[in-house]
C-alpha cells in the first residue's frame, strides 16, 4: 500500500507537469468499496485541488449524497450488497441532479447503456488511465459548463456560430468539414479542460472502442492546421499522456 501510493504520486507528477490545470475545485464523493482504489483516487483528486469524501458502501454513500451538497459523484458499479446503479436511481428519484460518473469492471456495450439509462452521466471501464478519469471528471463539472443552450461558442479570437455553422478566427472565416465542425465544437464546449482521445471518439463519432492507430490524432492535426496555422497564439494543445485541450494560454 505504501509503495503503491508512492508510485501513484509520481504518475500524477508525470501527468501534471504536462499542463493539467484545475481552476475549478469541486466537492466530490467517491462511493467505492475497494479501499485501495478509493485511496488512490482521493489522493490524486485532492492533489488536483478537489475536496474528496469517500463512502465504502452503498448505504452510507447514498445517505451522504442525499444530505450533503456535492458537485460530482463517482460511483462504483459493483458494491457489496447492491448495484451502484440502484444508488443513482434512488438519487434521481429524489430529484438530485448531481453529475454521476460510473466506474465499472463491466465494459460491455449493454452495461454502458444500462449505466447511462439509470441516470449516470458518464461511464468509465476499469482499468482506466488516471488521466482519463481526471478528464472525464473535469468534463462533468457542472460549474464550468454552460447551463443554457448557447448559439455561439468562442475562445480568444476563435468563434463558432452553432446556428449558421460558421467558424472564424480573427474575423477570417475557416471552412470546416461537418465532422471537423463537431470535433471543434466538442473541444470548445470543454475549452480549458483536457479531452481524451476516447472521449472524442465517443462524443464526436459515437464509437466506444479502442482504436489501435492514431486516427484521432490525424483528425486533430487537420483541425489544427485549419485553426492554428499562421497564428502566433496556438489554441489546440496536445496534452501528453492524456489528450487534447483547447485553451488560450500555454
Amino acid at each position: 500500500m505504501e509503495r503503491c501510493s508512492r508510485s501513484f504520486d509520481r504518475i500524477l507528477v508525470y501527468v501534471s507537469t504536462d499542463k493539467w490545470r484545475y481552476d475549478i475545485p469541486m466537492r466530490i464523493l467517491i462511493i467505492e468499496d475497494d479501499k485501495d482504489a478509493a485511496a488512490f483516487m482521493m489522493k490524486g483528486l485532492s492533489e488536483s485541488g478537489h475536496t474528496v469524501d469517500h463512502a465504502a458502501d452503498g448505504k452510507f454513500g447514498l445517505g451522504q449524497a442525499l444530505t450533503e451538497d456535492y458537485d460530482l459523484l463517482v460511483v462504483d458499479r459493483m458494491l457489496p450488497g447492491r448495484d451502484g446503479l440502484s444508488i443513482i436511481t434512488a438519487l434521481r428519484a429524489a430529484d438530485i441532479t448531481t453529475p454521476v460518473l460510473i466506474l465499472s469492471a463491466l465494459g460491455q456495450v449493454d452495461d454502458r447503456v444500462a449505466g447511462l439509462k439509470a441516470g449516470g452521466d458518464d461511464y468509465l471501464t476499469k482499468p482506466y488511465a488516471f488521466s482519463e478519469l481526471l478528464a472525464r471528471i473535469d468534463a462533468l463539472s457542472r460549474r464550468s459548463a454552460p447551463v443554457q443552450e448557447v448559439n455561439r461558442l468562442s475562445l480568444a479570437d476563435l468563434e463558432m456560430n452553432l446556428i449558421t455553422h460558421r467558424v472564424s478566427r480573427g474575423g477570417v472565416e475557416i471552412s470546416l468539414q461537418p465532422r471537423e465542425f463537431r470535433l471543434l465544437e466538442c473541444l470548445l464546449r470543454n475549452s480549458d479542460k483536457v479531452v481524451t482521445r476516447t472521449m472524442l471518439l465517443e462524443k464526436v463519432w459515437d464509437y466506444n472502442f479502442d482504436p489501435q492507430t492514431n486516427v484521432i490524432d490525424v483528425h486533430i492535426s487537420r483541425l489544427r492546421n485549419k485553426i492554428d496555422k499562421n497564428h502566433n497564439v496556438k489554441l489546440l494543445h496536445t496534452i501528453r499522456g492524456a489528450g487534447y485541450s483547447l485553451r488560450e494560454n500555454n
Partner: peptide
C-alpha cells in the same frame, strides 16, 4: 531519470 522511467512504466 525517475520521470522518464515512470513515463515508460505508464
Amino acid at each position: 531519470e525517475y520521470r522518464e522511467i515512470m513515463a515508460q512504466v505508464v
